[in-house]
Write a protein that binds this DNA or RNA. Sequence first.
DNA 1: AGGATTTTGTAGTGACTGATACAAAAAATG
DNA 2: CATTTTTTGTATCAGTCACTACAAAATCCT
Lengths: 198, 198
Amino acid sequence: MTDTKNVKSRGRPRNFDVDEAVGKAQALFHQRGYDAVSLADLTGALAINPPSFYAAFGSKADLYGRALERYAKTEGLDFDRLLAPEKPLNEALADLFDAAAVAYTTHPEATGCLVIEGARGGTDAVACDKAKTLWRRSRQVVRDVIADRAADRADEITDYVMAVLAGLSASARDGLGAARLRAIGRTASLAFMSDKAR
Amino acid sequence: MTDTKNVKSRGRPRNFDVDEAVGKAQALFHQRGYDAVSLADLTGALAINPPSFYAAFGSKADLYGRALERYAKTEGLDFDRLLAPEKPLNEALADLFDAAAVAYTTHPEATGCLVIEGARGGTDAVACDKAKTLWRRSRQVVRDVIADRAADRADEITDYVMAVLAGLSASARDGLGAARLRAIGRTASLAFMSDKAR
DNA sequence: AGGATTTTGTAGTGACTGATACAAAAAATG
DNA sequence: CATTTTTTGTATCAGTCACTACAAAATCCT
């Protein structure tokens, strides 16, 4: 329905690449957070004027939504792979925490998880809700995968897993490097060694 | 040096209680976060006008600093008590996580830790730094207490403890109640049962 | 009472926020 | 070429932000 960019449309051609712009916006939002990125920052970084911005993205919050989706697609954790059914639960969670530790520190200037930090909200409730929706979706995916192995404790374990991810993201924002983050993840996964977790 | 309120000062008497005002501000900041509380919100809640506000508190960020200190004094975790030297480490950490789970959910409209959430920053770097300073101070206290029992792994364990606290605060903001938060804390403390944590 | 001092309320300040009105420019279509 | 369609740049918009200038009001001191 929505025309792709290679289809020649009618009027004056756009002077900038929309997908590339979403990527730049994603980086800005990840570095500074939604509130701290102004429209002037965005139009400055994209080298366009406000009318072009609004014609292309609708609003700041809408662009944020696209940046969030792009982040989830390109940099988000692959829960289905990390928590593959054939892995033992303890091993799967250890892998998940380790992957998070690495992912949250790959960009030294944009640490932590864009979704988690965005879901913590600020001034704009609409933008916060967009992040919260993605966060809830991730939670649901995690819960479903865990439920296959420990149906009775799925909610409890999911609470713990999401809390650990949030803790890792916060620690990454605090400035902890990958090594220290991975150590945290290793300790967090100890809870599932043997059947200690009653 | 700074005169206390019972000392009769010279000019027109103040029309509101400063300490009480700091308490109200603390509640507002805790509920919505620094950025989402405007000066109009504050002066409205305190039923005063901007000039009275600035004469009493200097700036919004300064009042935030006072609110943070008040929070640490009145609602902050008592690390020295919770991590008392005579307790075994695993028990002490379990107590700490449990106390955090309770503290972060006592005010249903102001969940999580004011310091932790404030340290995650937003628009105002000065305000964020004030929270970060308190967060670092807490970290130092925790580290010192842990170092008495496990000097070689003090940093590693401290990283983990602070990450768990951040995860609990984030989960509280997510809407999890005390029971689910306490379950997270219990699971997080399993890492220190026996000598699994190598 | 009269002067000194501090807080008060009224009414603003400039700077920035996200978002637009409008017309010229640049392309496809007829 | 003329029309249609879309994007562009210029110049804003109203609203909110944290913050103040100023003078009247309310207290203490002499």
